[in-house]
Write a protein that binds this DNA or RNA. Sequence first.
DNA 1: AAACTTGCCAACCGCCCCTGT
DNA 2: GACAGGGGCGGTTGGCAAGTT
Length: 209
Amino acid sequence: MGRTPCCDKQLGLKRGPWTPEEDKVLVDYIQANGHGSWRSLPKLAGLQRCGKSCRLRWANYLRPDIKRGPFTEDEQKSIIQLHGIVGNKWSAIAAQLPGRTDNEIKNFWNTHLKKRLQRMGINPDTCSPSPPTTNSSTSASTTTSSTWRNGRALALKLRLASTSALVTLAPTMNVSMSTYSSEYGTPPWAKRSAEPGRPTMKRRRRALQ
DNA sequence: AAACTTGCCAACCGCCCCTGT
DNA sequence: GACAGGGGCGGTTGGCAAGTT
């Protein structure tokens, strides 16, 4: 229904890593004109990229308000707590961490936090102590890819359920509604989506080049 | 020093939702 | 109400650097 073929399928569009020249073209264009329609942006800016790629590059890397550098202890705690509540809703988590991108948080979770929790004997999916993997589908925090296949539907449900959802989910993480609100402000599911364009940590490899 | 393995992360892919017609 | 276009999201992948053998 209404789904268009990915713009990436167009012939002649460049893919892969962005060059500094492309970055500059994109930044200059957006700063001068705003991004407007992402689909038409590449043509207007003179980029051989699809709009989706431009949006991702801007959101994850080029935006000026991106916070670079390692995650602080507080940020890590926040990620763990929020993940226990909303699961793999990276955009919702990112919305609570100014300057961090969903992609960055997702990568950090998968490469650092998940392993750390596992080493501590904590199930990263449920944030509960060393649960025997029972495949219980009743846990709202069960975040395997299959369970969260329709993650956006869940996000919608959370938004609709509003506070009651938090009341249901919070016990998993020992986070009460008042605690959550005071610490993080508006719950992520109360927002339509994450704040667009939270760019990414600079790439270590590139920095070394 | 070379070969191999592991860790990391930017970018891609495909799905779904929202909005306008 | 149905459809189409566009944007956003989460999962996955590819490639490079660092570490190990």
